[in-house]
């Protein structure tokens, strides 16, 4: 188990940028993919894309973000890669339905963003779990789900 207890710097900044460039040519850069929600954790167990088991244990004043360099040596570098947030897009049939779905989602404490007339729900678990909760509103035609391409 590789212990990672400090953010040493960021991949885009020198001197890390040049060092990581050199290490990457030798296939010595490993990435830890972290979900947006998990960036708030200071401690967690994760596995790099090359299978290295890691235990992250940061001080409270440090927070994970994309490009954070957690380990670097002549043999290996370990860099955080932020996973893309997945969203469920919803569109309400009318104002009354919008109020109803807003109230409903508020009660469920889901994280949302507004995009014009669409409501974006941040997926922090399986999509089906969210669709199950919304089933009655969808079946009643009060809301419809959209894809990112709609």
């Amino acid at each position: 188990m590789q212990i990672l207890n400090s953010i040493l710097g960021y991949a885009a900044d020198e001197p890390f940028d040049s060092a990581l460039h050199d290490l990457s040519h030798a296939g010595k850069v490993e990435y830890l993919t972290i979900s947006p929600e998990d960036t708030s954790r200071r401690r967690m167990k994760v596995i790099t894309n090359k299978g290295t088991e890691c235990a992250i244990a940061l001080n409270r004043d440090q927070q994970l973000s994309d490009g954070a360099v957690l380990n670097i040596s002549a043999d290996r570098a370990i860099v955080v890669r932020l996973a893309q947030q997945k969203w469920l897009l919803l569109e309400a049939q009318n104002h009354a339905a919008a109020l109803e779905v807003g109230y409903f989602i508020g009660n469920l404490h889901w994280k949302v963003e507004f995009e014009g007339e669409r409501l974006k729900v941040a997926l922090q678990g399986p999509l089906q779990t969210y669709l199950d909760r919304l089933e009655l509103l969808i079946k009643a035609g009060k809301i419809r789900t959209l894809t990112e391409d709609d």
Binding site: Q2, N5, L8, P15, L58
Partner: peptide, 21 residues
């Protein structure tokens, strides 16, 4: 690793920072 006097360091042992559960 190149030798340009970079102050890069590998992570060492576990620091004392209490886990919050």
């Amino acid at each position: 690793m190149n030798d340009t006097g970079l102050r890069l360091q590998a992570s060492g042992g576990l620091q004392k920072s209490a886990a919050r559960i």
